[in-house]
């Protein structure tokens, strides 16, 4: 997915390598979604999705990064976050997107749950090469 970053607002990249980074990604996502003037419910949904994906990057991807910023499209403002890791990748995407399926010890709601919390979701992965998840939430 091509992310339509807002021209006047550079996206920022954060490392996701430690436990604390998940909290930092949440705070980062909170700041952005407030700046984008998402409704309170939409803010909560976006931050929660970012939290799930950051944890995935850390736990399953062995660490990576989160690039997030404001986006613009069809006259609307939105927030986007791209989570990237160079871990083992996901061999079976369909399975990974299923509620309750997990390769680790989680609840298996990370990917499938995050997808339901955002407006746009793209998963780009290859076994052995890593995973890239892009999410966008548009302001209403």
């Amino acid at each position: 997915m091509n992310v339509p970053w807002a021209a006047d607002d550079e996206p920022q990249t954060q490392p996701v390598v430690m436990n604390d980074d998940v909290v930092r990604v949440r705070q980062f996502a909170r700041g952005l979604s407030q700046r984008c003037k998402l409704s309170l419910v939409d803010q909560t949904k976006f931050i929660t999705a970012a939290s799930e994906l950051a944890r995935n990057t850390l736990v399953y991807g062995g660490g990576g990064s989160c690039t997030a910023g404001l986006v613009r499209g069809r006259g609307r403002l939105g927030v986007a976050a791209v989570f990237e890791d160079f871990g083992p990748g996901i061999p079976d995407i369909e399975l990974a997107m299923t509620d309750g399926w997990t390769s680790g010890g989680g609840l298996g709601l990370g990917l499938s749950g995050a997808r339901r919390l955002v407006d746009e979701f793209a998963l780009d992965t290859e076994a052995g090469r890593g995973t890239k998840v892009t999410v966008i939430k548009w302001a209403r």
Binding site: V41, K45, L109, G113, L117
Partner: peptide, 14 residues
């Protein structure tokens, strides 16, 4: 639990 949190949890599937 805040309303926004409850709505998000339901959407998340928890």
């Amino acid at each position: 639990m805040r309303p926004a949190v409850a709505i998000t949890l339901v959407e998340l599937g928890l």
